[in-house]
Each structure stands twice: as C-alpha cells, then as structure tokens.
C-alpha cells in the first residue's frame, strides 16, 4: 500500500549549517507517527519542508504519491487541501474570531453557502471539545489549551486525511496534556486520520503514537515504539531511558 507520507534523501542546509543529510521517513495511512529529536535537531525544519514552506536542497517529499518539492504553487493547492496543520503556538489569525478562523480555509477552497459554512465550522469547533461560545471569541481571549484546540479545529476545516501537529502538548499542564492526547486519539479513530506529530512529551508519545521517528545525526531512525526504545544510539537511549523517562516508568509501576 502507498504510504500517506514519504520523505526520501532529504537534505536541508542553511549556509554552513547542515540540518538534514539524507533523511528518510515513511508514514503509513491511519497511524500516529511521532517525530522526536533534540532541540535544534531540525524537527521544525522537517515539518516546514513537508508543508512546502521551504524547499530542500535535495530529496523528495511525497504526499499521497505526489512529490511536493517538484510542484508549482497551483499544483500544490489541491494537495494542501488534503492535509491540515496545527502550529505550535496555534498560529490563529489574530484579527478573526475562532469561527472565522475555521471558516477561512473553507472560504478559500470550498464554494459553500454562508449558513452551511457556519454550521460546519461550529461542528468542527465542538468536535475538538471547545464550548460553543468560544466560536465568537478572538484568539487573544483564549487560554493556551483552547488555542491549541482551536488550531486543530481549523486544521480539520477541509476534512483532511492527514494532520500535522507541532508540539501539541507543549505549554500544557499534565492533566490538560492527557486530555489533549485523548482528543488526538479520538479524532484519529473516528475520522480515520493519519497523524504526524512533533513532540518532546514522553507521556504523549506512549499514549498516542504507533510508530516513532527519532532525528539523530541529521538522519531519522524510525520504528515501532516497542522496538525503538531498544536502539543502541546514545541519544535514543538517553531519551527513552534517561532520568525523566525512569521517573515516568517508576510512576507507572507505582500506581
């Protein structure tokens, strides 16, 4: 079966600095794929490359089989309608209400009567667990957790099959983070989404991800969660078996 997302031989370089050197990555349909890596290892650059926000020096990025690094803006348009992105800080348009934020992609891509647009946007807002009165609020009036939920509602505006989440639980307290992971799983199962998420949060990874890709030495090691924790690479060992990870495992055994 054709992978939902396939990155091959990706090279990203900024001046002297080499960020990715032949990075490969493959995400199958209907899985939750977690991307982890140290700060500065190029997680965000990878995401920006996949989203077509920057062109790589070499390599291919295939979404549903079409290589987005070779396509023009016009050819990219229908592909962009097939994926949704929730940015780390939400990236909600600050001049628009939550409802208008969710509607903007619909206005640009779909030809819908305003009434249907209102109801569909409200449905997406309720689906991500926001109260109906949040729809009329501006992003500045929302809490951090609500901004993140609103960002997902906007990402779902065009009913994408592929959803990108950039550090969805960062800045959330553990309880909200757990609730957020529940939301991600709920959406994945019911909407049959393929989810790619960048995260630092170990708890989040163990709760939601089927497979994990770790960016080490400018490349990616990816495998199922059970197998990747035993990879010998020192960073992977430190990440999954370091102090914080042990604290987490201890807490899990203790209860």
């Amino acid at each position: 079966m054709q992978p939902a997302l396939q990155v091959q031989g990706l090279v990203n370089r900024f001046g002297e600095q080499l960020v990715h050197d032949g990075l490969d990555m493959e995400v199958q349909a209907d899985e939750v794929f977690g991307i982890v890596g140290g700060s500065g290892s190029g997680k965000s650059v990878l995401l920006r490359t996949i989203l077509g926000l920057q062109r790589p020096q070499a390599g291919t990025v295939r979404i549903d089989g079409s290589d987005i690094t070779r396509l023009s803006e016009a050819q990219l348009r229908p592909i962009k309608a097939r994926y949704g992105v929730a940015f780390q800080q939400g990236a909600l348009y600050s001049g628009l209400t939550v409802l208008q934020n969710v509607q903007l992609p619909m206005i640009e891509h779909l030809d819908l009567p305003p009434a249907a647009r209102d109801e569909l946007a409200l449905l997406k807002i309720r689906l991500v667990g926001l109260p109906a009165d949040a729809a009329r609020k501006y992003p500045a009036e929302l809490s951090g957790g609500m901004v993140k939920r609103a960002a997902i509602a906007r990402a779902l505006a065009l009913d994408p099959t592929l959803l990108f989440l950039d550090e969805p639980t960062s800045g959330l307290d553990p309880v909200s983070a757990a609730a957020f992971d529940e939301l991600v799983l709920y959406l994945q199962q019911h909407l049959k989404l393929t989810i790619v998420m960048i995260t630092h949060d170990l708890d989040s990874i163990f709760r939601t991800c089927n497979r994990v890709g770790v960016i080490v030495d400018k490349r990616m090691e990816s495998d199922t969660l059970e197998r990747i924790v035993d990879y010998p690479h020192p960073w992977i060992q430190a990440y999954f078996h370091g102090e914080r990870a042990r604290a987490r495992a201890g807490a899990a055994h203790g209860t």
Binding site: Q89, R126, L127, V128, G129, L130, P131, A134, S143, G144, G145, M146, R149, S170, G171, L172, D173, V175, S176, A179, F180
Partner: peptide, 9 residues
C-alpha cells in the same frame, strides 16, 4: 464537550 486550559512561555 469539555474544555482544557493553560498558557505557554
């Protein structure tokens, strides 16, 4: 539907 909250740094 429930809602969650907290700001970032």
């Amino acid at each position: 539907a429930p809602a969650a909250a907290t700001p970032g740094a």
